[in-house]
């Protein structure tokens, strides 16, 4: 079991995965997601590239390795659940769902177009694989908590993962859910905080400070782990360690970079929304190529 730490780190357990085929696979899929989601956003003329790119490696690790889900039977009772609490990050979610087989890649080209199933925020009545509709912040964790309670009552083996933005943790409903999940000892629940440090308009710490964030979760009855949210081996190690049974819910604070993978977007709040022009799009794809060639 990983020790509890306050800050991000490259976990020692990651050394168990050097050149692992799992790491390679997730890394390749994450690279595909970055390229594909940026194209989606550019084609659609809008999106949330900054948050998509900070979440990409987390979402890729879940969808292409960890989650026990079946696109042929997307509502199977025993499936693992992933809840995208930061619902605006549809670039990351839709590419992952498509890559995992929930719908054809070609449908990504319909993103935001009239009547598309790929709305600006995910809708479970449109698209298989979406567990609950999100968009307004502060909704995903309470719903994920309810799913985990159902699993706890039935002693079902499924696991529930919720990905939240860090700015989203300024919503009171997240802490209502955090308090209750801690109280219930929901060991089947894992929250991943996409800790890119930026919310829409500014740094979280300049807006309404979250730190000491790990202490907050711990005080609410959670086990806390810090990881580099772009290191696939560390992410795999952290998720592997989320195996049942546990007696506490688990918070993975994933230190991330908003706009990760595109030099001119990284750490820039302005790219929360934002649309690359043709030159920037070409530059970004060149950087993706270079990264994948490493």
């Amino acid at each position: 079991m990983m020790e509890q730490v306050d800050g991000p780190r490259r976990d020692a357990a990651a050394s168990a995965y050097p050149n692992d085929t799992r790491v390679k696979h997730v890394r390749e899929r994450a690279g595909w997601m970055r390229r594909r989601l940026l194209k989606m956003i550019v084609d659609a003329g809008q999106g949330h590239p900054g948050g998509d790119l900070s979440a990409t490696d987390i979402v890729a690790t879940l969808y292409f390795d960890i989650l026990r889900i079946d696109p042929v039977d997307p509502t199977a009772a025993g499936r693992d659940r992933f809840v995208m609490s930061k619902g605006h990050c549809t670039g990351a979610l839709y590419t992952a769902l498509s890559g995992a087989g929930f719908f054809a890649e070609a449908e990504l080209d319909t993103y935001l177009k009239p009547q598309s199933r790929l709305n600006g925020h995910p809708n479970r009545t449109y698209l298989p694989g979406v567990e609950t509709n999100t968009g307004p912040l502060g909704h995903g964790l309470p719903v994920a908590t309810g799913i985990a309670v159902a699993g706890q009552i039935d002693d079902a083996g499924f696991r529930v993962f919720a990905l939240t933005g860090d700015g989203e943790l300024q919503e009171g409903s997240m802490w209502e859910a955090a308090m209750f999940a801690g109280h219930r000892g929901l060991g089947n629940l894992t929250v991943i905080v996409d800790r890119n440090g930026l919310q829409q308009g500014a740094r979280t710490e300049d807006t309404n400070a979250l730190e000491p964030l790990a202490d907050k979760w711990r005080a609410f009855g959670w086990e806390v782990v810090g990881v580099d949210g772009h290191d696939h081996a560390s992410l795999l190690a952290a998720f592997d360690d989320a195996a049942l049974p546990r007696s506490k819910p688990r918070c993975i604070i994933a230190e991330t970079v908003k706009g990760k993978g595109i030099s001119f977007m990284e750490h820039q709040a302005a790219w929360h929304h934002g649309l690359p022009n043709a030159d920037q799009f070409a530059l970004a794809n060149g950087e993706f190529d270079m990264d994948m060639a490493r």
Binding site: T132, V143, A150, I153, E176, A177, M179, F180, H183
Partner: peptide, 28 residues
Amino acid sequence: PSRLINVGIAEQNMVGVGAGLANGGKIP
């Protein structure tokens, strides 16, 4: 007893948890 879920004084979480329970196959 195991089917009475008391979230305390937290209505937003109460309704969200209800939606989650429905996702988990319950009729809350």
